[in-house]
Each structure stands twice: as structure tokens, then as C-alpha cells.
């Protein structure tokens, strides 16, 4: 069997809803990846520590509280400062279209909203894994979808 990808799924901030995060974690598991779930209400620092300790290649952030515009870029910045800018970051939850450009600018490579199929997420994972400039610290402005 090929070496599985290691993917951290995290819930930053004060947000108690993790059904979506668990569904995504399960879909990624079923696609053959090793998924590390952090549990609820983690700080950006805790999440970055988890990514480093687990030597993850991907980080999925879920937020339904409206704090994504603050928390997601902060996590990307911390990852870059911790020498793990190679980690590919994607997000999901309730994220207004108007907020997306700033998140892409911050280094998030995909934003998945309600109604996303697990196939779409898995397509993103395999596409991004094959690229060498998809990390949150990469210069490239490539991202998934609009």
C-alpha cells in the first residue's frame, strides 16, 4: 500500500459544532488517508503544534462561528513562521463568498461550503498533493475552485 497522506482536521476558536468536520474526516479516512482530529475549540498555536508533531501534509480548518477571517490567516502565518509553509491548508464551514479572496491571499488553497461532495474534497487533496507549490507559504496564487 502507498504511504498514506497525514491530514489534520481542526476546529479553531469558540465553535461547538463539529458534525461537518467529522463527516470530512470520515470521507478522508475512507479515501485511504490518516486523519488526525484535534477536537473542539483549539487555539491557532495548538493547531500548529499538532501539525508539526504529527508531520502532517494537509490541514483542514472548519469554522461555523464567523471567526474564519481572523483565525484562518493567523494559522497560515504561524505555519509559515514555524517552517512548515509546505503544509497545504483548506477550509470549510459557513464562509461567505466575499470573504474567500482574502483567505486565498492568506494561503488557504480551497474553501468548501455546505453541499460539497466528498468527491470534490478528495479531488482537491489528490490534485494539491501532486503539486509542489500548493503549501500555505508558497508564492504561487493557485487555488481550488473560484
Amino acid at each position: 500500500m502507498a504511504t498514506p497522506l497525514r491530514i489534520v482536521i481542526a476546529k479553531p476558536g469558540l465553535d461547538g459544532h463539529d458534525r461537518g468536520a467529522k463527516v470530512v474526516a470520515r470521507a478522508l479516512r475512507d479515501a485511504g488517508h490518516e486523519v488526525i482530529y484535534t477536537g473542539l475549540r483549539r487555539t491557532p498555536e495548538q493547531i500548529v503544534r499538532t501539525v508539526i508533531d504529527e508531520d502532517a501534509q494537509f490541514l483542514g480548518l472548519s469554522s461555523l462561528s464567523g471567526a474564519h477571517a481572523h483565525l484562518f490567516p493567523k494559522i497560515c502565518k504561524l505555519l509559515q513562521e514555524s517552517d512548515v509553509g509546505h503544509v497545504i491548508v483548506f477550509g470549510g464551514g459557513i464562509i461567505p463568498t466575499a470573504d474567500k479572496p482574502a483567505l486565498f491571499e492568506a494561503g488557504i488553497k480551497a474553501i468548501f461550503g455546505p453541499g460539497t461532495s466528498s468527491t470534490q474534497i478528495n479531488d482537491f487533496i489528490s490534485t494539491a498533493a501532486a503539486k509542489d507549490d500548493a503549501g500555505c507559504g508558497a508564492e504561487s496564487d493557485w487555488h481550488w475552485g473560484d
Binding site: 479515501a31 486523519v35 488526525i36 482530529y37 499538532t50
Partner: peptide, 20 residues
Amino acid sequence: SSPISGGALLGDRLRMESAD
């Protein structure tokens, strides 16, 4: 790990907040 897909859901960190 899943005997079918080879994937895994690693959930031990959930209860180990001291580690973070």
C-alpha cells in the same frame, strides 16, 4: 487503520490537550 481503505481516524489527541 481501515482494513479496507488503509485510512485511519486518529482521535487520541482529542483527549490529550496537554500535548498541544
